[in-house]
């Protein structure tokens, strides 16, 4: 149902389909111009993951905000199941749509820039993709819970887009970032997700980053369960739930 609703949003389609291709194009040209065309698959994977993150981010923010605008947020809060359970499938659906962004980027890279799509471990790549998308969906759930209190979801989404791309090292190594950013990177599922995808595609150890993706995904679910309960209570107590 959420996917159907998202499918009617031109902005969401822009975020999940068009935007990743735009950023991939810029990154491809930058690497080609810099004399590093051998890194195109690396770039394509990173640009695709950027799309997965953007879709999760805007989708997670949007699902609370859209319900607020449509006047259905109170109904979801009033339903007997815990709020986290109501929104879990929504968030996962957002992230699954994000997987399309990755696929679109890879196809775009192959057709327009001739990116070689030869994966070192195709099976592990598929496993890593599913795990990463699920973990990002669960991370999106934590973000969605904050939008119950913070009503300007789009502003928060705008703010978080680039920083997570940077801290996760999606299209460049985090080793070039200041040392103080490392713990932030380690706490982000996209950081481990792109490592797992990269190693599965280009060669390298996959299971350790994949394990971290699973751990952080589970941690996100636990955190989201708590934050949904707390923020929902605050919003009800302050009567701010439906304020736009």
């Amino acid at each position: 149902m959420n996917l159907k609703m998202l499918g009617t949003s031109g902005f969401f389609i822009l975020t999940s389909v068009v935007q990743p291709v735009i950023f991939a194009t810029i990154a491809f040209y930058m690497f080609k111009s810099g004399g590093r065309p051998g890194t195109l698959l690396y770039t394509a994977l990173g640009a695709g993951m950027m799309g997965v993150w953007s879709t999760t981010l805007f989708g997670s923010g949007g699902m609370i905000q859209w319900q607020r605008w449509q006047g259905t947020l109170e109904l979801s809060v009033g339903a007997p199941p815990p709020m986290v359970l109501v929104y879990l499938p929504f968030s996962l659906a957002n992230a699954v749509t994000g997987a399309y962004a990755l696929a679109a980027t890879l196809v775009w890279g192959r057709l327009v820039f001739g990116v070689p799509l030869h994966f070192a471990h195709p099976f592990l790549f598929a496993v890593a993709l599913v795990a990463t998308v699920l973990a990002l969906g669960l991370m999106g759930l934590v973000l969605a819970s904050t939008f119950i209190l913070y009503r300007y979801a789009n502003a928060m989404a705008n703010l978080l887009e680039y920083p997570v791309w940077i801290a996760s090292g999606l299209v460049f190594s985090t080793s070039i970032l200041p040392a103080w950013t490392r713990p932030i990177s380690w706490a982000l599922p996209p950081y481990w997700g792109v490592l797992a995808l990269r190693h599965a595609a280009l060669g390298g150890e996959v299971w350790r980053p994949l394990g971290m993706v699973a751990v952080l995904g589970a941690a996100s679910l636990v955190i989201a369960t708590g934050t949904f309960r707390i923020f929902e209570h605050y919003a009800r107590a302050r009567a701010t739930l439906s304020l736009t």
Partner: peptide, 23 residues
């Protein structure tokens, strides 16, 4: 967040990407 911090995050992202691409 959108108009004052946003442009800076975009700059940092592309500057690091530029470093990696040796551009």
């Amino acid at each position: 967040p959108t108009l004052l911090i946003g442009p800076t995050t975009q700059i940092v992202f592309f500057a690091y990407l530029g470093r990696t691409a040796h551009l």
